[in-house]
């Protein structure tokens, strides 16, 4: 069984009987002591014989989960996220154990997770790309999310826009999306903007963002986002689709390499999804690459797509990464 740091804190406050047991080796105990929790130390093969509930604690909560399952231990709990998550909870009163599987990653950690939770992200367009982008960013811990789209859900959207269901047809996309996203993370602060980005509202809508996601379906809006991001000096994570293919790039980092440098001049009309056609999985793949690159950008994880254009072909699964 699993117990989160917050649940364990409730046990302490309500005087539940339990024994917390640190099963880590001496070196890990020395490097990262458990803060603010009475506990004993024991080897995993020599756990205390007690009628009290046991809470086993390791560094990340992975080893203890394995021990409980393998030995079929009853009345024994694994502390989700381990000492890392407990200490972060103890220090900040924020339970980050939910993200324990990603905070294990050296490049993320508790510090990175805190950074994600304090970041402000704007997604423009809640269609094929916007849905997977929003879903992945909310579930990975982005709390401040603004979603912008002036369209209502149509029946033909459902095959590639999984935040919406049959009953949402006719509703504004941002409202339907907010309901689904809020169910994934009740503490997220989702600002649903039910009109399109334009020259008049653009600066105001994007001004406080750390990163802007371009999930639009037309080049004129893309160019406007590019212009606004340049003016506000905000990075833009670009994504676009064509049949079985997609493009992703991180543009306008430190004022360099924007969409207008990628495709300068006037661009003649290009087919969009309703004209060229699209399989529902493609926006899922490309949108998730955008979300991945957003997290890498926010946490300064390298290599990434800053100043590079990724071309992905879902038919042959070939990619090209072009330096801008």
């Amino acid at each position: 069984m699993i117990i989160t740091p917050k649940e364990l804190q409730n046990w302490i406050e309500n005087n539940h009987y339990f024994k917390a047991v640190d099963i880590r080796g001496e070196e890990q105990r020395y490097d990262l002591p458990i803060m603010g929790l009475d506990h004993m130390i024991a080897h995993e093969n020599n756990l205390p014989n007690t009628s009290d509930k046991l809470v086993l604690i390791c560094q990340f909560g992975i080893v203890t989960e394995g021990i409980i399952i393998e030995n079929d231990l009853k009345e024994t709990f694994s502390l989700l996220g381990g000492v890392e998550a407990w200490n972060a909870f103890h220090a900040q009163q924020k339970d980050m154990s939910r993200w324990s599987r990603q905070t294990i990653l050296r490049e993320v950690g508790i510090e990175g997770q805190t950074k994600l939770m304090n970041s402000k992200v704007v997604i423009i367009g809640m269609g094929g790309l916007g849905c997977p982008v929003a879903q992945s960013l909310i579930t990975c811990g982005i709390k401040n999310l603004k979603i912008i789209d002036g369209d209502a859900v149509e029946l033909s959207n459902l095959h590639r826009q999984p935040l919406y269901g049959f009953d949402d047809v006719g509703r504004m996309k941002v409202h339907a999306a907010k309901d689904t996203l809020q169910a994934l993370s009740d503490s997220a602060l989702i600002d649903a903007v039910q009109f399109n980005l334009d020259e008049n509202n653009g600066l105001r809508l994007l001004a406080d963002a750390n990163v802007v996601l371009d999930a639009t379906d037309n080049i004129s809006t893309r160019k406007l986002i590019d212009k606004l991001c340049k003016r506000l000096n905000i990075p833009m994570v670009y994504g676009a689709l064509y049949r079985y293919e997609g493009q992703v790039a991180i543009l306008n980092v430190n004022g360099k390499g924007g969409y207008s440098e990628l495709f300068p001049g006037k661009i003649p009309s290009v087919d969009n999804c309703s004209e060229a056609g699209i399989l529902g999985m493609l926006p899922g793949i490309i949108g998730n690459i955008q979300a991945l690159e957003t997290v890498k950008l926010l946490l300064d994880i390298k290599p990434n797509l800053i100043g590079k254009l990724l071309l992905y072909d879902g038919m042959s699964h070939t990619t090209q990464t072009i330096k801008l």
Binding site: D214, A240, Y242
Partner: peptide, 10 residues
């Protein structure tokens, strides 16, 4: 060589 066209679907 890659010849890259703009695409706009989303």
């Amino acid at each position: 060589v890659v010849l890259i066209p703009p695409v706009q679907g989303g």
